[in-house]
Amino acid sequence: MGVDGAVRPPAYQTLAEDLRAEITSGRLRPGERLPTEPQLCARSGVSRSTVREALRLLASQHLIVTTRGVTGGSFVAHPSPQDLSDTLSTGLNLLISTATAGLCDLLEVRESLEVPAAAQAARRRTEGHIAELEAALLDPAEMDVTALLATHKAFHAALVAATGNPLFELLSRPLYQVSNEREVAATAPPGFWQQVDLDHRELLRCVKAQDAEGATKVAREHITFIRTALVPPD
């Protein structure tokens, strides 16, 4: 506890915060090697076990990678929207599990991201993106709930990838990794997945035709349908 009565964070957390600041500020660049464990001990005045705990924390947040061997060490990770979104997913699931945020909040954020993302995807998509979207179309007559949820997630991941904007990917991916998705899916009314399938196919048609206006309209109507189908009336 500090002199002002505040509880001090553990030493490993303080060291991790210092290193994180160096990484996020750009002072340590992707691929660059961090100081060695003995160097970090000497620089920070902490034990080797504290240094290792700090490095484990940074690795769990996908900020560094550690390799073994003569040329091994800890290196700043190359940023990956998919890896970094895992950290956001943890926070999102915590909010959902504690009822701090609900389905209405989730759909509100989805709408704010998915609608402009659909328009950007229509403008920027490549033939490779089209192939990924086609491969992620639903088959409600043959798929069980697990397969439907996985395919639904893959479709939207392919859609945001088609924007060519890694920030869309980083922010959108966690929205399809919520821990209560099976519970929500269980409340879906009859015909729900069939309509989701129709929406996805129409969205694909607009993206393929590079119809940004049409993609915007379909994406907004898609969220409206999900909200109407899954959110109980007040």
Rank of each mutant, 00 (worst) to 15 (best):
A42H: 13
E37G: 04
L138I: 01
R48I: 04
L137N: 06
I96E: 13
A16T: 02
A54L: 06
A11G: 03
D105F: 11
V115S: 06
L113S: 13
I64G: 05
A122E: 08
T14R: 15
R8A: 13
S112G: 02
R68I: 07
P9Y: 09
D105C: 14
T50R: 08
R124H: 15
I96Y: 11
H78K: 08
L133M: 13
H78T: 07
H62T: 09
P38Y: 00
P79E: 05
H78V: 05
L107T: 04
I23M: 12
L88F: 12
G102T: 03
A131D: 13
C104L: 13
T87A: 15
G128C: 05
H78L: 10
E132Q: 14
T36W: 03
A59S: 08
H78Y: 14
T24E: 14
E114A: 08
H129A: 05
L106Y: 05
R29T: 13
G45C: 07
T100L: 14
V65F: 11
A117R: 08
S112F: 09
A54R: 04
L40Y: 00
E134S: 08
R43W: 10
P35T: 01
P81V: 01
H78F: 10
S60G: 14
L107F: 13
R33F: 02
L137V: 00
A117P: 03
L103N: 12
T98V: 01
N93F: 02
L40G: 00
V65P: 02
L34R: 02
E32G: 06
P81Q: 05
L28T: 00
E32I: 03
V70N: 12
S49D: 09
T50K: 07
L40R: 02
V70W: 11
R48M: 07
T50N: 05
L103V: 00
S97M: 08
G26E: 10
L58W: 01
R27P: 03
